[in-house]
Computed example of a mutant assay.
Amino acid sequence: MLTRALIVVLAILNLGVATWWLLRDEPARAPLPPHPTGVAELRWLPGGTDAAVAAQASAAAPTEALVEREAAPATAVAAAPAPAPAPAASASKSVEPVKTPEPVATIAKPAPEPVAGKPAAPAAPPRCLALGPFADRAAATAAQSRAGNLLGQVRLREQPAASGSARYRVLLPAAASRDDAQATVKRIVAAGLSDYYIISQGEGTNAIALGQYRNREGAERRMAAVQAAGFQPRLVASGDAGQWWLEGQLGAAAEPAQAQQRSGAAQQRSLECTRLR
């Protein structure tokens, strides 16, 4: 019985609240404050670029709003800078001006470095020449000293006379007597040397000749063999004298004319470097 009474009371209360809600008066809205003259109206745009364009088309304000469009998909904000500072009583919000980005300095990229391991340019081939002619070996030796480091792998070469009459003899000094000369011959034979004879007349009496040659190179080889056997021979030239040449390889920064001038040679000739080996 009590439960039924509570249900009836609740139903009557709900019916009363519903009737009051339907019959109540609509509250009046407060009027908006007047818009200040000369100040752009700030409006919120719910969309992106299309919403900003629609808002500009429908705006009734005398001044156009500034629209700042960013590259990122952010909401565009339309605002126009006020010509004069707004009064303190103005309810509009001030919009800060957009700062123009400063230009970024361009940093020049350094030139690429050479690749490690890249093969270097091939070196220039060696150059060789002959300088001369010189009257004798002493003059050629002096020219070699004057040339200095302009020439490397230097050698002295004698060119026989054109007539072919030059001769080179390898001699042992004259002995005091014939018997002394014969004793020396026995020592020569014991050392394994051959091609010898004792001079019996003239200025070289009792001297021992160990060979006669047409070029100095052959005579010098014979002298070296005799010296190796323990003797001290000498070289005697006869007939027309030959010419001496200074042969060598040019330095890296040297020129043929420079080497010729420094050595004092009258001529220069190109030479194959293989001849110096």
Rank of each mutant, 00 (worst) to 15 (best):
A86T: 03
A82G: 09
I7G: 05
P233T: 03
R269Y: 09
V185S: 00
Q159Y: 00
R222N: 00
T205K: 15
V77K: 10
T184S: 10
A74S: 08
A88N: 01
G248P: 07
R4F: 09
L250C: 03
G48Q: 15
A207P: 05
G204F: 12
P110G: 04
S165C: 00
A120T: 09
E158S: 03
D50E: 14
A61P: 02
L156Q: 05
K186L: 12
A229P: 02
A28S: 14
A60S: 11
D195F: 04
L66W: 10
A88G: 05
A130K: 04
R146E: 06
E158K: 04
N149Y: 06
A143V: 06
E203I: 08
R169E: 14
A55R: 10
L131R: 03
V236D: 10
Q153V: 03
A237L: 02
W245V: 05
A120K: 10
M223Q: 11
T19S: 15
Q243N: 14
G132P: 06
A142V: 06
A105I: 05
T141Y: 02
P233E: 02
S238Y: 07
Q243Y: 07
A54V: 08
G202D: 06
G47V: 02
V185F: 02
W244S: 06
Y197G: 09
E41P: 07
R4N: 06
P126D: 07
Q201A: 15
T184Q: 14
E41K: 13
A252V: 13
M1S: 11
L45W: 08
V185A: 04
R24S: 15
A28F: 11
V39C: 13
L131G: 03
V189L: 10
I107V: 13
A28M: 14
A54Q: 12
S165K: 10
R127C: 00
I7F: 09
T205H: 08
Q258D: 13
G38V: 05
A253G: 10
A84D: 11
F231N: 02
K99T: 14
I12P: 00
P62K: 08
R155S: 11
